[in-house]
Simulated scan of single mutants.
Amino acid sequence: MISRISGFLAAVAMAATLALSSQASFAQAADAASAAPTTEAAAPAPAAAAAPKSEENPYGLGHMLSHGDAVSKGVLFLLAIMSMGSWYILITKLWDTQKLSNEAKEVRATFFKKASLADGVKGLKDTGAFRFIASSAIEASEHHEGALTENIDHSSWVTMNVERAVGEVNSRVGSGLGFLATVGSTSPFIGLFGTVWGILQALTAIGVAGQASIDKVAGPVGEALIMTAIGLGVAVPAVLGYNWLVNRNKAVMAEVRAFAADLHGVLMGNRAKR
């Protein structure tokens, strides 16, 4: 036990001696360094005084715009137009379907509770789809005359006009979806064409210059690959927006067709009472 304690004390004493000796040597080195003449500190530093120059990124979109040819700029401009058109259609059609859905709820709650069809039509919006369908149906019911229309019974005549009005409303609601489908299916290939064209121009320039180092290849090739990324960035919102609008249009048009069917039943019931 005593030997362990004495050994421990000896180790502590040795460690303290080493620490004191290293601290003394460090202090001597610091004194020598402070006493030495600093000739370099007095020398001016022109490199520090000069303002750092901002280097242009050779792999970015700005470099492609400034150094690209007419084909690459045309592809980029076309993708920008397609993207703006897709977002415009998506926002406006979402707004239109939301208004039509709100109008359908209001019509379902108030229209068939009116005293007459004339009062119900007056309560509808002048430029609304339900006003257009109701006016078409009432006009067809009240004006069933003519040599050609006499061969068609009244119910079929009203049904034809109501279905025609509903079809026109469906065409208005679905307008613009073809553009979204076109953008979603073609923009990746347009971006890929820009990439292929950019890589072709880059490899041609590298072959003419005779320099095939990695810094000469990575810049133009990476710059050309931006086109594919932009094409995908244009296509994905268009495809998602198309599917979303199709589902919303189906739900809204189901309410429109239900209103048209109920209106047809009311018109036939009124005629039977006469």
Rank of each mutant, 00 (worst) to 15 (best):
L117H: 07
D119R: 10
V121A: 11
V121K: 10
V121T: 09
V121N: 08
K122A: 14
K122T: 12
K122Y: 03
G123Q: 07
L124F: 03
K125D: 06
F130R: 02
R131L: 04
F132M: 09
F132H: 05
A134T: 12
A134S: 14
I138T: 13
E139T: 15
A140N: 12
A140L: 02
S141I: 10
S141Q: 12
E142L: 14
E142Q: 15
E142G: 14
H143R: 15
H143G: 08
H143M: 11
H144L: 05
E145L: 08
A147W: 00
S156G: 03
S156D: 07
S156P: 02
W157F: 12
W157C: 07
W157I: 06
V158Q: 14
N161Y: 00
N161L: 00
N161W: 00
N161I: 01
V162I: 15
R164A: 12
R164S: 13
V166T: 12
E168M: 01
N170W: 09
N170T: 11
S171G: 13
S171W: 00
V173I: 15
G174A: 11
G174V: 07
S175K: 14
L177Y: 04
G178E: 02
G178L: 01
F179A: 04
F179L: 04
A181K: 10
V183R: 08
V183Q: 07
S185E: 08
T186S: 15
T186Q: 08
S187T: 11
S187W: 01
S187E: 06
F189Y: 15
F189A: 15
G194H: 02
G194N: 11
V196F: 04
W197C: 14
W197P: 13
G198Y: 14
L200Y: 15
L200M: 15
Q201C: 11
L203M: 12
A205Y: 00
A205I: 03
I206V: 07
I206R: 04
I206L: 03
I206T: 05
I206P: 02
I206A: 07
G207I: 03
V208H: 01
A209M: 00
G210Q: 05
A212T: 10
S213K: 08
D215I: 05
V217C: 03
V217T: 06
A218H: 02
A218P: 00
P220S: 08
P220H: 06
V221P: 02
G222S: 04
T228P: 05
T228W: 00
A229W: 00
A229L: 05
I230D: 00
I230L: 03
G231L: 01
L232C: 04
G233S: 06
V234G: 04
V234R: 03
A235H: 02
Y242C: 04
N243D: 03
V246S: 05
N247W: 03
N247A: 13
N247K: 15
R248I: 04
R248Q: 10
N249K: 13
N249C: 11
A251H: 09
A251L: 09
V252D: 05
A254I: 09
E255D: 09
V256K: 12
V256G: 10
R257Y: 07
F259L: 10
A260M: 11
A260C: 11
A261C: 09
A261P: 03
D262V: 12
L263Y: 01
L263R: 12
L263G: 15
L263I: 15
L263V: 14
H264A: 11
G265I: 11
G265L: 13
